[in-house]
């Protein structure tokens, strides 16, 4: 087992990502992610303080849409795709916790 990422971190990350892992999956992911992160050491150790990050390959800016209404889509078509719909709305189990 590598020290690049711990089991607890894997469990924490899985919770953030809303994934449930069985104990053996936690082991496997810990091992596999550690190996990927091992490879990431070449990037992690780079001295690049003076380099600006690039989030996007194109130097585009200011792409705007005109504030004009375009037709919405038929809600029945959309709601037909929903696992559960009721009263023209999407039905979900109780929501616990607060909206951030």
């Amino acid at each position: 087992m590598s020290d690049r990422i711990t089991r607890d971190e894997v469990i924490h990350v899985a919770r953030l990502a809303r994934l449930e892992l069985a104990p053996d999956e936690v082991d496997a992911f810990t091992e596999q992610l550690a190996r990927v992160l091992e490879h990431a050491a070449d990037v992690e150790s780079l001295e690049v303080d003076d380099v600006a990050p690039t989030s996007h390959p194109l130097p585009l800016a200011n792409v705007y849409r005109a504030d004009e209404v375009t037709p919405s889509i038929d809600r029945d078509e959309v709601l037909a795709q929903a696992p559960f719909a009721e009263d023209h709305m999407f039905r979900v189990p109780p929501v616990l916790g607060e909206e951030p």
Binding site: V69, T70, P71, S72, I73, R75, M89, F90
Partner: peptide, 17 residues
């Protein structure tokens, strides 16, 4: 981010795309 109407009080899920 889309051309759906920004309107308060519409029927549920009618201003969607």
């Amino acid at each position: 981010f889309c051309g759906c109407a920004n309107r308060f009080g519409s029927e549920p899920n009618t201003n969607i795309c």
